[in-house]
Design a protein around this nucleic acid. Structure first.
Lengths: 336, 336
DNA sequence: TTGAAAGCGCTACCAG
DNA sequence: CTGGTAGCGCTTTCAA
């Protein structure tokens, strides 16, 4: 089933059918009707590959994420997609599960698809991959993983400030034994968050004890990391988690050990995913405005109004601290 | 950047480059090297659209889901993708958010992409859309939404049996006031689960009171539905939820009302998503083997070994009940 | 306002 | 084992 069959049935040329299908309003209304009738009767659906090939432009935006299972990434996808659809683009996602090989695979796939733009929401990144992307001439926007280059936009979050606020608050509440639960990831946000944590600890000086531990991203990773932490004998009164998803996992480990939150241990998340309000207790966290990020990412790739993609901009996002039930004064356990 | 440039640089024909890129082992090893060298030097990435168009086959499988935010769907996607990748296919997903219009859009998009197969993991379904798909000649597999036709495979879950088991267990534990929390959805699993619940209630006879309530799928929907239920004045001692995701939302409403689970109220989920073990208390639920579903779906679409897609099969899955901490004897609240 | 025809980048078939 | 070439289904000039 192709244009030609439709054209034949409508008694016009393929060019005309194409024009109708693309809403080029040069077509006489009577002709248009004939064509649409034929299209409907034949249950015709244009071949998008042929269209892309002939048209020379893709109309799809790619997004590569490290862990679509983590609602944080899904939220970004959702806002990016909404913005894209509104502007006549599709978006196709690819998940790497923090696997460098899958990252390479995904990037190549996106290049092969000749996507109109690519949002990289990943923690791992290889310099040579960025080269590849640049050589392919695909507009890119990186979230959180540094790729400071010409023509490449970066969206970054000011973790430092947020983690510092969180730590300062906990310290003020009397906490002196801290722990950081991270997740494995070569570079980027995690290590940046961890570094931010470490720096904050150092800044607090000798009055505090602390350690860090890490496992995979996610519920299970948080659980394992927290178990490992608790089994080590070290007993923090405050745990700073790399993100909410991990924190929810850690919460389970705390319950297993009979520790009350925030009575025995305070815990913080990061991101402000919906789930952070549904766990018990709800998490004190730092809100990252995912809706904005999706929108900004799209604008950096294919701005509305057919402007050229914005040249390499640097967008910094300031998280907002949200204090909820998972944190409180040190040693505040209410006796039963 | 195209085949021709690569061919020129390697001093061979485009046909040969194509053969190398497709691993047709008829190429002399020396020639192959030359080609690969040129490919690398030029940072060449084949245009997948051209490939699909010329080759006449797509090598990508589509999946349309109602709510990718619900981990249940993501789990199915993950297993489907794993199986697909293993067999040389890509998979591209589309999310409908239970919106019939987005469903139509998604289906058309998949047809336009000429996907090699399509997994429909949706609750809403329009008969005419199934026609469209059939006319387009795309192998399809439907999860849970009846589309009994020639050449179309269906994977369904025996909700009836599972819900009945759950209800029977609760009844045996002394529960007499039940509630069902569902989610809006035109047809399919929800209504089937709800019907299953209703039937079970009727079967229990006049000794029980019950009612049903519904909101959107998800954390927020579960919360709202449960609030609505509790504010109605009816006080069930057992709540059966349409799925785990919703149940976690309901749990929050129960906490808000100062109700202890399972002391005051028992609650059950469905699906056995990972989160069901991370909430407090962990949910009694019915396990649906998502990994199997993804695999079965793939096999129904593009069986390994180049066999033709299996002709319309009907696969029934029997959930397994998992009893965890969210259920217990009626009126068993331990006094503080 | 419409049609004819030249590609878009690749595969696959037929020769050699 | 390799090259030439006819499409795949569509868009887009260029003419009419």
């Amino acid at each position: 089933m192709n244009l030609e069959e439709v054209a034949r049935r409508a008694g016009v040329s393929t060019a005309t059918v194409s024009r109708v299908l693309n809403n080029l309003d040069v077509v006489r209304s009577a002709t248009r009707s004939k064509v649409l009738k034929a299209v409907a009767e034949l249950n015709y659906h244009p071949n998008l590959h042929a269209r892309t090939l002939a048209g020379g432009k893709s109309h799809t935006i790619g997004m590569i994420a490290s862990n679509m299972e983590n609602p944080f990434f899904f939220d970004i996808f959702r806002s990016l997609e909404a913005e894209a659809l509104r502007n006549g683009y599709e978006v196709v996602v690819s998940n790497t599960d923090y696997d460098p090989e899958r990252l390479v695979r995904s990037v190549r796939l996106m290049i092969g698809r000749r996507v109109a733009g690519l949002a990289m929401v990943v923690s791992e990144m290889d310099e040579s991959l960025v080269d590849e992307l640049a050589a392919a001439g695909i507009p890119c926007v990186f979230y959180d993983v540094g790729a400071p280059r010409e023509h490449i936009s970066n969206i970054r979050v000011n973790y430092r400030a947020a983690i510092e606020s969180l730590v300062k608050m906990l310290h003020t509440q009397g906490h002196r034994r801290f722990a950081f639960i991270g997740h494995h990831s070569a570079l980027g946000p995690t290590s940046e968050r961890e570094r931010a944590f470490t720096k904050s600890m150092v800044k607090l000086g000798s009055g505090v004890e602390w350690r860090t531990v890490a496992d995979r991203d996610g519920l299970e990773g948080g659980l394992q990391a927290a178990r490992q932490l608790l089994n080590s004998g070290f007993r923090p009164t405050a745990i700073v988690c790399v993100n909410d998803f991990t924190a929810v996992g850690a919460l389970r480990a705390l319950r297993e050990h009979g520790l009350n939150v925030p009575g025995d241990v305070s815990i913080t998340g990061f991101d402000n995913i919906l789930l952070s309000e549904y766990c018990d207790p709800p998490l004190t966290t730092a809100d990252i405005p995912r809706a904005d990020i999706g929108r900004l990412a799209f604008e950096a790739l294919a701005p509305a109004g057919d402007r050229q993609p914005a040249p390499g901009r640097e967008i910094v996002i300031e998280p907002r601290i949200l204090v909820r039930g998972s944190t409180g004064a040190a040693y505040s356990r209410r006796k039963p």
